[in-house]
Design a protein around this nucleic acid. Sequence first.
DNA 1: ATGAAAGCGCTAACAG
DNA 2: CTGTTAGCGCTTTCAT
Lengths: 336, 336
Amino acid sequence: MRVTIKTLAKALNLSTATVSKALNDSYEISNDTKQRVKALARELHYVPDLNASSLRSGRSKTIAVIIPEVADSFFSQAINGIESVAQEKGYHVLFYLTHESLAKEQAILQDFQSGRVDGVLISVTAETHNAAHIKALESKKIPVVFFDRICDEMETAKIITDDYESGYKATQHLIDCGCRQIALLSISENLSISNQRMEGYKKALADNQLPFNAANIIYCANDESYNFCLIKNLMVQANRPDGIIATVEKLSGSIYFVCRELHLQIPTQVKVIGFSNLQSAWLLNPPLTTITQPAFNMGKAAAVALFKALNKKNYSPKNEILVIPSSLEIRNSTVI
Amino acid sequence: MRVTIKTLAKALNLSTATVSKALNDSYEISNDTKQRVKALARELHYVPDLNASSLRSGRSKTIAVIIPEVADSFFSQAINGIESVAQEKGYHVLFYLTHESLAKEQAILQDFQSGRVDGVLISVTAETHNAAHIKALESKKIPVVFFDRICDEMETAKIITDDYESGYKATQHLIDCGCRQIALLSISENLSISNQRMEGYKKALADNQLPFNAANIIYCANDESYNFCLIKNLMVQANRPDGIIATVEKLSGSIYFVCRELHLQIPTQVKVIGFSNLQSAWLLNPPLTTITQPAFNMGKAAAVALFKALNKKNYSPKNEILVIPSSLEIRNSTVI
DNA sequence: ATGAAAGCGCTAACAG
DNA sequence: CTGTTAGCGCTTTCAT
C-alpha cells in the first residue's frame, strides 16, 4: 500500500490536517509533533503526491523553458544556468523546443493554461512578431521572463546581452582590420536581438563613413543547405564582401564551409566573426573570432528573476531589462 | 471565472461525467454530444486541469529525461530526438542534469515517487555503479528506459550504440595509420560504455599483436583543467603515445589544447580520434576523425521504447537492447 | 496546538 | 447513451 498523509495520521493518532501542517512546517504545530511526523515520514519513505498538492494549492513547483533549438551551445549553456537555479530551489524544469515555429510556440503556451507550470522562461522564435499568446499567460497569473530573444511589447523581466554594442564592436573590429565591405548574416526581421545587432552594425559603418548596402544584409533561414546557398551566392560575386558577421552561432559554420568550397582564405581574403559560444572556437581552422555571450549567466539570471516573481504575492515580474555584456574575443579568423 | 467541466455541463444541460467522457472521446458518448461539448469547450477556451486529471487518473502525460550534461552535442542531439517524439505524442518532458553526481541522480529519482512523471529516460552518471535507486521506480510502476549510458543489472529497454565495435574500429584505424602506442581516455570504470569501448580497444591491440599497457588508459574526471594536466603529463613523456582515442566528446578538445601547448603536430606526431558528434569536427584544425554516434536516433528510439511501455497494461518495458551503430568518419587528425 | 470538514477538478464504476 | 456517486491526496478555513 502507498504511504499517504492518512497513513501517517493513523499511525501517530493525529489528524491529516495536523500531519499536513507539520510537514509544511506550519507555525501552528508544536515542535515535538513536527519531529515525530517527519521522523515517521522518513521512516516510511513518505513522498507527497504532487498532483494532489498542486490541485489543492494551485502551485506545481514546475517551470517551463521554451527555446528555439538546443543543438547550439548558446542555449545549451543557458539551460545549464537555468537548471542550476531550479534545482537549488527545488523546482522542476519542463523543456520545450519550438524549432523556430511560431505555431509550436503557441501550442506549447496554450497548454500552460492547464496549471502545469508556475512560471515560464522563454526565448522566442524568429517568427514571433506579436505576443498575444504570451500575454494570455498573464491573465492566468503565470509570470513570464524573457531571455536573449525578447518581445519588446511585453512588460516583464527581460535578460539580454548588449546586442547593439556587440554589433557595433564586431563591425568596428572588422573595419579596424581593413574590411570595407561587410556582410551581416541575420535570421529575422522581427527579432529584437537581430535588429539591435544590425543597428550597431549600421552605426559603426556610419561612424566610419562607410556606406550601408542593403545587399550585404542576408536573411538566413532555419535550413542549413539553403543558408549554404545564400552564403555561396554572396561570396561568388566579383565584389564579394571582405568581412562577414554571423549574428547567430550556427551560421559561422556555414561560412567556413562555403569558404572551404570556394577556396577562399580566412582571414586573408575574407574575415569572419561569429556570435558564438562554441567551446571549440579556438580549435577551428582558423580559430574563430567571436562575440561570446554570457549564456550560462543569462540563463541563471532569467531563472532568478522568475523565482523572484514566483515568491511575490502578485506574481508579476518587474518590468525591467537586465543587460549582461558580451565580449569580443579576437582570434585568427580576423587577424593573422 | 475559470471554465471547468462543470461550466460546460451546466451550459449544455449534461452531467460532468458525460462532458468528461465526451472530451476524452469515449465510445459511450454519441457523436452529436461530442460535437456539442467540444464546440463549447473551444468557444469558452476550456483547458482541462492537468493536476486534477493526473490525480484522478494516475497519469501525468509527462516523462523525465535525466542526463549528465548538456554542453555536449551528443546529449543535445539526443534530447532533440526525445523531444520530437514526446511532442508528437502530446507528452511533456522534464529535464534534469546530474553533472555526473550519483547523489543528484538519486535525489532526482526519489522525487519521482510523487507521481510527477509517467516514465523515465536516463543516461546514468559516471559514478553510478549500482541501480538500487532506479529499481525503486519499478515498484511504482514507472517504466525506465536507458540510453547510451546504461545499467547492465536493470532488466528493461536499453538503447545503445555499438561501443565495443566502435572501440575496436577506432583502435584498428589508428593501428592502420601506423600507431603502435595508443592511449585511451576514459571517464569511468563502472560505465558500461567505457568498458565496452575499452574491451574493443584491447581486442584490436591483441589482434594486431600489440601489448596492452595499463599506463595508456587514462581516467579523466569531470574537471577540465584536471583533465588537461592528466593529458599533458601523458604527452610530455619521452615514450609518449603516437595515437589517442577520446572516448567521450569533451576530451577531444582537451587533447587539441594540450597538443597546441606542447607544439605537438596532429597527425604527424600524434594521431587523434574522438567519440564525438560535434558539427564542427570538420572545421577543427586539423579536422577531427570521429566515431560519430547516432545521437538523435538514439534519443528518438529511447522515447519510442518508453511510450511503447506506457501504452501497455503492465507498464514494464521489454528487456531488450537496441543497438544503433556508430560510424567512423576519417578526417585529418589521423591521416594527412 | 490540534481536528473536522469541505472541496480543488476530474474520472471511473455503476446504474439506469 | 447519459447520469449518479464517490473519491484521488492534499490543503485550508474554521472550530475547538
